[in-house]
Every structure is written in structure tokens, then in C-alpha cells.
């Protein structure tokens, strides 16, 4: 586990992955956007508005996925005192918050023509909003204390408590029958949407995923270098 705690090792791994992730991001976004905007048919009910889904659904997936990443990193940081895991949570949080905000905003824009309202207080929307607030709380706690490590550990505890919300988001559409449509892709009996729509959906999901990897590595390197700087400043003052 602590093999990856060595920042130099991390930097080597990051530099090896980075160019491939960048190429993949450009290619997948290109293909995904082509299929999402041009290469797929309009929905028989929703018309062209269905294209919002290709931005919205993967963003919501990423919002949840990144929260789980933060939770796992928090667990590793708290249990094994893993310094890079602590920074991983910090690096991932703003990206996750942004994807969650993107999901909320695109959902609202889609909801206005389709449901006739920007917002309804149903289980799915409310629990995603709560997840957004949890991201904000996590980031605010990081900034609240001078001692970086204490702040990070406190934020990690909050992140683990907030995991309770993840199953609520996933199953909210099954538990409460509301305006938001039930799961149509990630279900046990296979997806219920047409293949022509699954192609852009999965392409966009993959594009978001590699985009996350690129930005995440950038932010990790930033945090590692920040840490290095503050250590150097600290030792400089002692001499």
C-alpha cells in the first residue's frame, strides 16, 4: 500500500499515464459529442431534447463515482495514515462537485420543457442536491483548519458519514415514484433504452471518466508539489 505513498513514484506513474489519458479525452469527447449531437436519432417523445441526457446522465454518474473515490481515499487515509490518499480526496472533491452541479443544472434545463418545471422536490433531485452540499461541506472543512493533516482527516470522517447518501441517490427513483424516470441503463435485466442512444451515452461517460483522470492527476501533482513546498519552507525556517 505504501509503495504509492512515495511522491516520486506517484509522479512517475502520473507522467506515464498522462499523455494517454489526454489523447483518450480528446478522442472520446470528439466521438461522444458527434454521436450525442448529430449521429443519433431524436427521441420519439422528447425530440431533440433527449440530447441533454448525454451530458446529464454521465455527469450524474461521475458525481456519484467521484464521491465514492473520495470515500475510499478517506478510508485509506484514516486507517493506514496514507498521505497521498488524503490528498487524493482533496484533489477529487472540486471535480466531483462540478460534475454534480453540471448534472443538477442540465437536469433543470431539461426539466423545464419536459416536465414544465425547473425543479421538483422528489427523491432523486433532493438526494443529489444533498450530495452537492456534502461536497461543499467536505471542501469547507478542508479549508477550515490551519493544520492541513487535521483538516484533511476531519473532512475524511465527514466523507465517510456522507456515504449513507449514495445508496439513497441510486435507489431513490425506485423507492419513491416521482417525476424522475427509473433506472434504464444500470439495471439487472439489461438496459431498456435503444442501442443508438446507448452509443453516445457510453462514449460520453467514458470521455468524462478520462477527463476526470487528467484533471485529477493535474490536481494531485499540484497538491504533492504544494506539500513539498511547505515542507521545504518549514525546514528552511529552522536552519
Amino acid at each position: 500500500m505504501h509503495r504509492f505513498a512515495n511522491p516520486a513514484q506517484f509522479n512517475r506513474l502520473a507522467d506515464a499515464v498522462m499523455p494517454w489519458a489526454m489523447i483518450a479525452t480528446v478522442l472520446l469527447f470528439g466521438a461522444g459529442l458527434y454521436y450525442a449531437l448529430i449521429g443519433s436519432p431524436p427521441d420519439y417523445q422528447q425530440g431533440e431534447s433527449v440530447r441533454v441526457m448525454y451530458v446529464h446522465v454521465p455527469a450524474a454518474w461521475m458525481g456519484m463515482f467521484i464521491y465514492v473515490v473520495i470515500a475510499v481515499a478517506s478510508f485509506v487515509a484514516l486507517v493506514w495514515r496514507h498521505p497521498l490518499a488524503l490528498l487524493a480526496g482533496k484533489a477529487a472533491a472540486p471535480i466531483g462537485a462540478t460534475f454534480t452541479a453540471l448534472a443538477l443544472i442540465t437536469g433543470m434545463l431539461w426539466g423545464k420543457p419536459m416536465w414544465g418545471t425547473y425543479w421538483v422536490w422528489d427523491g432523486r433531485l433532493t438526494s443529489v442536491l444533498v450530495q452537492f452540499f456534502l461536497y461543499l461541506g467536505y471542501m469547507a472543512l478542508w479549508k477550515a483548519m490551519d493544520d492541513e493533516e487535521k483538516a484533511g482527516n476531519a473532512a475524511s470522517i465527514l466523507a465517510l458519514v456522507g456515504v449513507v447518501n449514495i445508496p439513497i441517490i441510486k435507489f431513490s427513483v425506485d423507492w419513491w415514484s416521482t417525476l424522475h424516470q427509473p433506472a434504464s441503463v444500470m439495471r439487472l435485466d439489461g438496459p431498456t433504452i435503444d442501442g443508438t442512444m446507448l452509443v453516445p451515452l457510453f462514449l460520453m461517460a467514458a470521455a468524462y471518466q478520462v477527463y476526470f483522470i487528467v484533471v485529477f492527476i493535474w490536481r494531485m501533482k499540484l497538491e504533492v508539489n504544494n506539500r513539498k513546498l511547505s515542507v521545504m519552507r518549514g525546514s528552511g525556517m529552522e536552519n
Partner: peptide, 27 residues
């Protein structure tokens, strides 16, 4: 208690505590 203990070392942690606790109160 979760919010209060997480912000125990934070000076003027009151507003931060609201931000941490209120979302968890929703259920």
C-alpha cells in the same frame, strides 16, 4: 454531534457546522 466534533478545533466553526449538519438532517 458529528458536526460539533468535526469543528471542535475550528475557531468560529458555527456557520461551518450548519453547512455540515443540515444536509445530514434531511432524512
Amino acid at each position: 454531534s458529528i458536526g460539533a466534533s468535526l469543528t471542535v478545533a475550528v475557531r468560529r466553526g458555527g456557520v461551518l457546522m450548519f453547512l455540515l449538519i443540515l444536509p445530514l438532517y434531511v432524512p
